[in-house]
């Protein structure tokens, strides 16, 4: 195994493109080192991207924010402004692991680990985030929901990696939230996660919404039926019931050590409803 810490994207892409065998990106390392330790993967090359300029930065762009691939959850939180615009995304990212994990873990890592239970992913999807993918051929911006394909599998080609996440400018009167269910109060992987972003008009009627569910399918789901259930409403009880029913209907989970099918289906609805209430209150200020 080889460790490299290039200082340009080009050099990193070059290393990854030429590498034989398994290669992995190191940013926060909170998934990578666990997988190496368990023998799940044995990379021949590890490319540490933290020396590349911009990777640890958050910059304002077109009214939104571009977040470097190596920005940790703690750094994201301390930034303040991102959390003000997209509280759901920042809260979701801050739910990943302990204080110690927050010191290292990144949104991009959470995304590219391609776990269906990744906390930040439904929140990013709901916010309409895009991932900037750099690679040997071209740089492309990809909706976050198109990165993970299946557990542990991404749509990235050889030589490609995600260099940043872009969170667009939130429209006026937009609120976002992410809630997850875990058996303990901390330190668990989501049994179910629900991310939502919604926009209301001056009268409090929902004009736009995006809802994403985690841990109920092979990858985070975008549930249009959930959005439809509440658009045009003032999030009254009937709208919430429709939302919960749509979330439960969309959930196609499995039973495993973390939860059962029935539990995940039921709680997907409960969390979608609760997250919507928070997002709605935030949207109305």
């Amino acid at each position: 195994m080889r460790y490299e810490a290039p200082d340009t994207i080009k050099a990193a892409v070059g290393l990854l493109s030429k590498a034989k065998g398994t290669s992995r990106i190191l940013a926060g390392g909170t998934d990578l080192l666990v997988q190496m330790r368990s023998g799940m993967i044995e990379p021949d090359l590890v490319v540490d991207i933290k020396s590349i300029p911009g990777m640890r930065e958050i910059v304002a762009e077109k009214g939104g924010y571009r977040i470097g691939a190596a920005v940790s959850g703690a750094e994201l939180e301390e930034h303040g402004k991102v959390g003000k615009m997209w509280p759901g995304v920042v809260e979701a990212t801050n739910l990943i692991g302990s204080t110690q994990i927050q010191g290292r873990a990144t949104m991009v890592g959470n995304l590219c680990n391609a776990s269906p239970a990744a906390d930040s992913v439904p929140a990013m999807i709901a916010a309409g985030a895009t991932a900037r993918v750099v690679g040997p051929k071209r740089t492309r911006d990809v909706p976050v929901e198109d990165i993970a394909k299946a557990p542990g599998k991404t749509s990235l080609a050889k030589g490609e990696f995600v260099a940043s996440i872009f969170l667009p400018k939130a429209p006026a009167r937009t609120g976002s939230a992410y809630l997850r269910f875990i058996p303990r109060t901390e330190m668990d992987i989501a049994v179910v996660g629900a991310g939502i972003a919604l926009t209301v008009n001056a009268k409090g009627v929902i004009t736009a919404a995006k809802v994403s569910l985690g841990a109920v399918a092979a990858r985070a789901l975008v549930v249009d039926a959930c959005a439809k259930a509440i658009i045009g409403s003032s999030l009254d009880d009937e709208a919430l019931d429709r939302l919960a029913a749509a979330a439960s209907a969309a959930a196609k989970p499995i039973s495993d050590k973390r939860g059962t099918v029935d539990f995940r289906i039921k709680v997907a609805g409960v969390l979608a409803r609760r997250a919507a209430v928070i997002a709605y209150d935030r949207a109305r200020g």
């Binding site: 058996p183 303990r184 109060t185 330190m187």
Partner: peptide, 16 residues
């Protein structure tokens, strides 16, 4: 055994 680690063998944490 499916949960041979402290992630999924859930001992109480301080906030529990």
């Amino acid at each position: 055994l499916q949960n041979a680690g402290f992630l999924d063998y859930r001992v109480p944490v301080c906030s529990d």
